[in-house]
């Protein structure tokens, strides 16, 4: 597989959120605004790239039987790094994302990529795969966050678009499910008409 293909397949064809339906908890839980979605997406991308790199580098030293716990420890270390860094430099975002920062550990996307890709491929390919998948994930979260922000509070990236009250339900929990459902439907439609 060419490097470009590895990089870009995470964007649409194998998008973690819209197609593979991985990592749904942070996707739904943190996307109240476009900024929050982007923040969560970037934090996840960092952990994904770093864990892919480390896993691909030390894959030959890990005994097959304990590889899953080993991957989890690697991922958890990077999540702790993100947690402490964000607490120090972006305290506001740390408060809004709250519980979902430590929960990056159990994002099935990261463990899935470590197991399915990084443990079988070279260091360079794994890095590219991490970036591609991570950017696809961040993109999906930002799009969902933007849609919910526009419909729910009438702004995008905190810039006001229209006056008056938005539909509050899109900021609350039910709107997350409904917005994501329609986004997937639109994407299905686009994929089929190609």
């Amino acid at each position: 597989m060419s490097k470009l293909k590895i990089f870009t397949r995470g964007f649409f064809k194998e998008n973690a959120v819209f197609v593979l339906l991985l990592g749904l908890c942070p996707t739904l839980g943190t996307t109240t605004t476009a900024f929050n979605g982007l923040g969560m997406g970037l934090a996840t991308t960092f952990v994904l790239v770093m864990s892919n790199i480390v896993v691909s580098l030390i894959k030959s030293f890990i005994p097959d039987k304990v590889r899953i716990p080993a991957f989890i420890v690697i991922i958890a270390s990077f999540v702790t790094i993100v947690e402490l860094t964000m607490q120090a430099y972006l305290p506001d975002m740390f408060d809004t994302l709250g519980l979902f920062i430590p929960l990056i550990v159990v994002n099935c996307l990261i463990l899935g990529r470590a197991e399915a890709f990084a443990s079988k491929n070279s260091f360079i390919d794994s890095t590219i795969d991490g970036f591609g998948m991570g950017i696809g994930f961040a993109m999906a979260l930002t799009i969902l966050g933007a849609v919910r922000e526009v419909l729910g509070s009438g702004s995008i990236f905190d810039i006001s678009i229209y006056n008056g009250d938005g539909m509050l339900v899109f900021v609350l929990a039910p709107g997350a499910f409904i917005a994501l459902g329609y986004l997937i439907a639109i994407l299905n439609k686009l994929n089929k008409s190609k």
């Binding site: 499910f177 994501l180 329609y182």
Partner: peptide
Amino acid sequence: NGMKGVPIAFVVAGLLALAFM
């Protein structure tokens, strides 16, 4: 057609969440 499968499941989950609210 476009809503078959996963998308409609999400919308239904949304309505369920609305009911729980």
